[in-house]
Structure formats: C-alpha cells, structure tokens
Simulated scan of single mutants.
Amino acid sequence: MGFNGWMESVTGADHDAAMITAIAENRRATDAYEELMQDDDFQRRVMAFSQLWPVLNVRDVRQKLGRDAFWAQDRDELFDRRRRVGVRMQPVGWTDGDVPTWPQLLRTIYCVRCNLFHGAKSPQHGRDRDLVRRSGRILRMFIERGRCFEWTD
C-alpha cells in the first residue's frame, strides 16, 4: 500500500502500469538513484538485493507451471522450466553481476510487491522474507535520501 501511495504521489497516475513507467522514465528519479548509488551503504544494499534476482512473476508461474511449482522443483529446475514456457520475471535485460539500472531496480521492487500481495508469499520462507525486507529498505532509503516527497514541478 505504501509503495502504491508513493508512486501515485510522485506521478499522479491512476494505474500501476502508468505509475511504474512514469517513475522508471522520470529524469529526476533516475538522477536521484544515480547519485545515491555513489553512497556505499545504498549501493551495497542494491547489490545485495540483486543477488536474489531474478524475481519470477508468481501469478505467471502458477498459470504456466502450476500452483505447486515452487514446492515441486528446486530453483534450477524451476528456472529451466520457466525458460521453456516464458514465465515473466524481473528485471528484464539484467545479467547476474550487473549494476542494476533505476528501471530494473524499480520494476523488480514492484514485482516483489505484486508477489507479496497476489502470490501468497510467506514470511516463513527465507528468500521471500529477504526479498520483501531488502526491497522495503531500499525503497525507504531512496524516498528519504532522494527527498522525492519534496519534489515539486
């Protein structure tokens, strides 16, 4: 809820897809992200978060691979099946070890948010908990240190 509230306040858009696109393409947000990436703490958190990537779209996994896909296979097997059937994931165009771009980071955090609300993620599952915790901390740091609530156009 906080993520969507923040996106709406920054963009004025009515729908999630429009909000994400507007923030991902926003020059001020991109500049703030690039500046924050010069901060060792912020950069360390972003890079640690990216070690958990890619993030599969849980709804798409369930539709294409079945509701039990996460429990029926190990991660390597699941990703092999994902490639064969084209399950959506974030970030697009990212390679392990790359420094994430602002759009990649934002869209991955949004994917985590969607999986949390629509994908029956569990706080008992360590990876799920790490994804939610890390994305929340990064987003909070971005909002506070980027001072985006003070932006006026």
Score class of each variant (00 low, 15 high):
Asp31Met: 11
Lys121Ser: 10
Tyr33Ser: 13
Ala72Thr: 09
Arg81His: 07
Thr11His: 01
Glu8Asp: 10
Ser135Arg: 02
Ala24Asn: 07
Asp128Tyr: 02
Pro100Thr: 07
Thr101Asn: 08
Arg127Asp: 07
Gln104Leu: 03
Phe79Leu: 13
Val10Gln: 15
Glu34Ile: 08
Leu52Lys: 11
Met7Leu: 15
Ala72Val: 03
Asp74Lys: 05
Arg83Asp: 11
Glu25Phe: 00
Gly86Lys: 08
Asp40Met: 14
Arg59Ile: 07
Ser50Met: 10
Gly146Trp: 01
Met141Thr: 10
Trp53Pro: 14
Asp40Ala: 15
Trp94Phe: 13
His118Arg: 04
Phe142Val: 09
Met47Tyr: 11
Tyr33Val: 15
Pro100Cys: 06
His125Tyr: 14
Val10Leu: 11
Arg44Tyr: 12
Thr108Trp: 02
Ser9Trp: 06
Ala18Met: 15
Pro103Gln: 10
Trp94Cys: 06
Val87Leu: 01
Arg67Lys: 10
Arg59Gly: 10
Gly97Trp: 00
Asp41Trp: 05
Asp14Phe: 05
Phe142Trp: 03
Leu36Thr: 07
Met47Asp: 14
Asp31Ala: 15
Ile23Trp: 05
Asp60Pro: 03
Ile138Gly: 06
Gly12Cys: 02
Arg107Cys: 02
Gly12Pro: 00
Trp94Asn: 04
Gln104Ala: 15
Ala69Leu: 03
Ile109Ser: 05
Phe3Asn: 10
Asp41Lys: 08
Leu116Thr: 14
Met89Glu: 13
Asp80Arg: 04
Glu35Ala: 09
Phe42Glu: 03
Arg107His: 10
Leu116His: 14
Tyr110Pro: 02
Ala24Ser: 13
Ile109Asp: 07
Asp76Asn: 06
Gly86His: 09
Val61Ile: 03
Pro103Phe: 01
Arg107Gly: 00
Asp74Ala: 04
Leu131Gln: 06
Asp96Thr: 09
Trp6Tyr: 11
Thr95Phe: 04
Arg147Cys: 01
Trp102Val: 13
Gly93Cys: 03
Pro91Thr: 05
Ser135Asn: 05
Arg84Thr: 12
Ser135Met: 00
Cys114Glu: 13
Lys64Ser: 05
Ala72Trp: 01
Arg140Ser: 11
Pro91Met: 08
Gly2Thr: 13
Asp80Ser: 12
Arg45Asp: 09
Trp6Ser: 08
Ala17Lys: 12
Leu139Gln: 14
Ile138Pro: 02
His15Arg: 10
Val99Trp: 08
Ala18Gln: 15
Asp31Tyr: 00
Leu36Gln: 11
Glu144Asn: 15
Val85Cys: 03
Asn4Asp: 12
Met1Thr: 12
Arg59Ala: 11
Arg28Trp: 01
Leu56Phe: 02
Gly93Lys: 03
Thr101Glu: 11
Gly5Trp: 08
Ala13Thr: 11
Val92Asn: 06
Thr152Trp: 07
Ala24Met: 04
Pro54His: 02
Val61His: 09
Gly119Val: 04
Arg62Asn: 12
Asp80Cys: 01
Arg81Cys: 00
Val87Trp: 09
